[in-house]
Each structure stands twice: as C-alpha cells, then as structure tokens.
Amino acid sequence: MENALQSFFVSIPQAAALWLVILVAIAVAGAYVGLPRSAPVPPLTPAQADEMRYADEVVVAAERAAATAARRRAEWAAAQERVDAAWRAFDEADRIAREGAQAAAFPLMSRRRKPGENADRQRYLHHAAVAACRNRQISIAQLNDVLAHRGWNPRLHPVVQEGLLRNAVRAHRMSQYEDAQKLEQAAWQESELAAEALRTLRAEAATAIVRAAVTKESPADDEWFADQWATGEIPATKAYA
C-alpha cells in the first residue's frame, strides 16, 4: 500500500506536465486556425493584363529616355567646352594679330630687289601658309587661296605677309568659334527635346502605373457593380402629384 501511494505521488508531476503540453498545443492550434486568411488573388482579366503590359512598356520607354537625356546632356556639356576652347583660341589669335599690326606700323625701307627675291618671297609665303595649315591655324580653303594667289600678293615683304597670315589665322579662329556656337545651340536643343520627352514619358508612366493598379483592384466591367445591389436595397423614388 505504501509503495502504491508513493508511485501515485511520483506520477502526478509527470501527468501535470503532459496535460500542460497538450493545453499549449491546443491553444497554438486554435490561434493558428483563428488567423485571418488572405483571399486568393483572382486572375487578371484581358483588360487588366493590357493595362499592366502597357504600364511596363511605358516604364521601359521612360528608362531609355532617361539614358538618352543623360547622353544629350553630356553632348551639350562637351559642346560648351568646345565653344570655350574655340573662343580662347580666337582670343589668342586676335592678340597675336594685333601685335603684328603694331609691328607693321613702322615703314619698311624701300630698296631695289635682288634678282630672284620675288621668288624667295613667294616660296616663303607658300611655306608659311603650308605650315599654318598643317598646324590647323588656317583652313584648306585659305591655303588654296594662298597657293593660287587669290587675294594674296606673293611679292610683298615677308613681314607684311606674316601680318596677313596672322589675320588669316584670326579669321579662321573666328569661323571655328561661330561653328562651335552653332553646334552648341543644336546640342542644347537636342538636350531640351530629350528632357521634354523624358518628362512626358515619366508622367505617362506614373499615370499608367496608377491606372493599372486601379484596374487591378476595380471590377472588370460596370455590370459587376450593378449586380451587387439587390432590388430591395435600391431606394424607391417618391412620386409627387
């Protein structure tokens, strides 16, 4: 009898622990069952699929437009740098030409020319013009004018010819500056057009995304909304005599 009582009292804590485990398991299972379940996502209708597809296409187009706008902006910045460089080159050529004009203000001594001196002066002019063209100080067209003696007198003194070449370099630099300005203006217009296209596509992408989201959450057609109303729920209109 004493051994039976001792066994009974020893088994009480084990039974209590087992019941506690069972109660905890039941509570966890009940809490899991009581959790709210999300309804399965209904399949997209053709209209919803079209809206989502269009939104994706517009987003991709906006990304490409952003890359194009960045490239146009970089091209415009490069064109601005070329304008600045062309102006610095013209400013330097103008300074050199003005210095040459000041030196040419002193009269040259007039003396009889030696035999063959005119040929030497012509060779000097041609050589100086070719060197200037090779250094891209004058254009090919200007070089052709010098070699053909169109507007150039090969019999002039080398000092005078040097001054005229400096003026030709200044004119060429000014022409380059004007061309750089035109290219910069064209690059700016292209950059503005690309930026405007990007703004338009981004606005359209935002609208398409919102429209696709609304279409995804809204009924597929208007008849669904009408079916949700029972006849008795529609307020009756009151007739007045």
Rank of each mutant, 00 (worst) to 15 (best):
L5Q: 06
S7Y: 02
F9I: 05
I12M: 04
A15K: 04
A17T: 04
A17G: 05
L18V: 10
L18A: 12
L18G: 10
L20R: 02
A27D: 08
A29S: 12
G34T: 14
P36I: 06
R37P: 03
R37Y: 02
P40G: 05
V41Y: 10
P46E: 01
A49D: 07
A49H: 10
M52G: 14
E57P: 00
V58S: 03
A69K: 00
A70L: 14
A74C: 07
A74P: 05
E75D: 07
E75P: 02
A77T: 01
A79N: 12
Q80L: 03
E81S: 07
R88N: 11
E92R: 08
A93P: 06
D94H: 09
D94Q: 10
D94Y: 09
R95F: 09
I96V: 11
A97Q: 00
A101V: 05
M109V: 09
S110I: 14
K114H: 14
G116T: 01
G116K: 03
R123V: 15
H126Y: 03
A129G: 14
V130P: 00
A132N: 01
I138C: 15
H149E: 04
N153G: 04
P158G: 06
V160S: 08
L164E: 09
L165W: 01
L165M: 15
R170H: 02
R170K: 13
M174G: 12
Y177E: 01
Y177T: 00
D179H: 05
D179A: 15
Q181I: 08
K182N: 03
Q185P: 02
Q185K: 00
A186I: 07
A186E: 11
W188H: 15
S191I: 01
A195H: 12
A195R: 11
L198A: 04
R199G: 08
L201I: 02
A203V: 00
A203T: 07
E204A: 12
A205C: 08
T207E: 11
A208Y: 01
I209L: 07
V210F: 12
V210P: 01
R211N: 14
A213I: 03
K216Q: 10
K216C: 09
D221G: 05
D222W: 06
A226K: 10
G232C: 12
I234M: 06
P235G: 06
A236T: 08
K238D: 01
Y240W: 04
A241Q: 00
